[in-house]
Simulated assay, not measured.
Amino acid sequence: MAFAVEPAVSDLKSDYDREGWCKIPHRFDDDTIGLLRERIDSICSRRRPEVVYEKDGETVRAVHGCHAFDDVCAALVRHPQLVSLAEALLGGPVYVYQFKVNLKQAHEGAAWPWHQDFAFWSEEDGMPRPDAVNIAVSLDDVHEDNGPLVVIPGSHTLGLLDLPAMADKDDRNGWKQHVSADLTYTVTGSRAESLAREHGKVLITGRAGSLHAFHPSIVHSSSNNLSADRRALLLITYNAVANAPAHPMRPKFLVERDATATTPSSDGRLRLVPDASPSDS
């Protein structure tokens, strides 16, 4: 199932450019998602630098850079349809800038406050422009009670909002604060509420395997997981090769140093099928 059919790609790019996000009309099948879950669950069971925990120090909040040491995740980032979609949205060759899985464990997963991803990539890594795209793969069924992503359409056109003063930046606690519930760069609740009144907001829900694309500057958040259902969201950030930061300082599992264009490669374990599920609310 290729995304190379021009009208489909054109429609997706139009939605992405206008709204800052788009739903991809394909999903990974159940066997693919089962395999990805197995690999992520195995990684979460190990004490590695790439594994980040909630404030209790035991509940896994996220894992990073899995494509560097797991063959299934490595195959996923080279999936021909994902690479071609990223190239179509960004207009040229891309490489994997970041790979992560954000997990909200049942009844324990904490919220992510309103923020923009590009704030971290610009301010911490020196990424020149928001010429990157997040491709999100739902590893679990996502519903309104297990902490879905909430986006404010059109907010990606507003630039970076509410950046802290330089003195406040000097008080930060390093990269771990960039992946915790206490984020270094956030959009204030009052501004987010104002933007939501003007632009509306969208809950990104759907069955496991669903695919979405998000702009680095879109204002987004997610709530606590109040349900008995885990919510795991796998995110591949493709960056334009021409947009690679010159001297990133954060760990390699957060920021890839090699900006060589990703070469697509098919893997029979990773299968896409048409997604006929309803649109997000």
Rank of each mutant, 00 (worst) to 15 (best):
V5R: 14
Y95R: 01
D267W: 04
V72K: 08
P130V: 03
G20A: 06
G126H: 05
T157H: 15
E198Q: 11
L36E: 07
L139V: 01
D171F: 00
A4D: 14
R47F: 14
S279D: 15
E50Y: 03
N239W: 10
A196H: 03
E54F: 04
G57N: 08
L149E: 06
A132Q: 10
L233P: 02
I135S: 01
F118Y: 14
V63R: 01
L149R: 02
S42E: 13
E124A: 11
A242H: 12
A208N: 06
E87H: 00
N239V: 02
A74S: 12
R250T: 13
R197G: 05
D29M: 07
G174N: 05
G34L: 07
V96E: 11
P148D: 02
H212E: 03
S281F: 10
E144V: 12
R129F: 15
K13R: 10
D31W: 07
L35A: 15
T260S: 15
P148G: 04
S122G: 14
T32V: 09
P80K: 00
R27P: 03
K13H: 05
A132C: 12
D280K: 00
L235G: 07
S180W: 09
I40C: 15
P25A: 03
F214D: 02
R172F: 15
L270C: 06
V60E: 08
A181H: 06
W21I: 01
R191S: 15
E6Q: 15
I24H: 05
P248I: 00
D145W: 14
L103M: 13
L149V: 09
R230E: 12
H26Y: 15
M1L: 12
P93M: 02
F99L: 11
R257C: 07
H67I: 00
H79Y: 10
Q105R: 13
M127G: 11
R129M: 13
H247I: 00
T157A: 14
V5E: 15
F253P: 05
R78H: 07
L234A: 05
A110V: 03
G34Y: 07
L226G: 13
V51M: 10
A246D: 15
K252I: 10
V187P: 09
